[in-house]
Amino acid sequence: MVTKACTRCHRLMEEERCAICNIPSSKNWSGFLIVLDPENSGIAQELNINLPGEYALRVR
């Protein structure tokens, strides 16, 4: 399974499309972030992430 990232929200997934943004996902990504508690995470806030989950730092 190839892990892909949404080019808009950076969420990681196996699917071809991001279920939240409804746009194609990309396999060209780097950096890795697990958000557990977005409300109390300065990193999540800096990246405008408000859902827990796995994210890429950069997606092309």
Partner: peptide
């Protein structure tokens, strides 16, 4: 992350820069 979810420990994120 899995351990954190199953515990009381307070971790808000885990970052892995390439």
């Amino acid at each position: 992350a899995r351990n954190v979810r199953n515990s009381d420990i307070d971790v808000t994120s885990i970052l892995v820069p390439d």
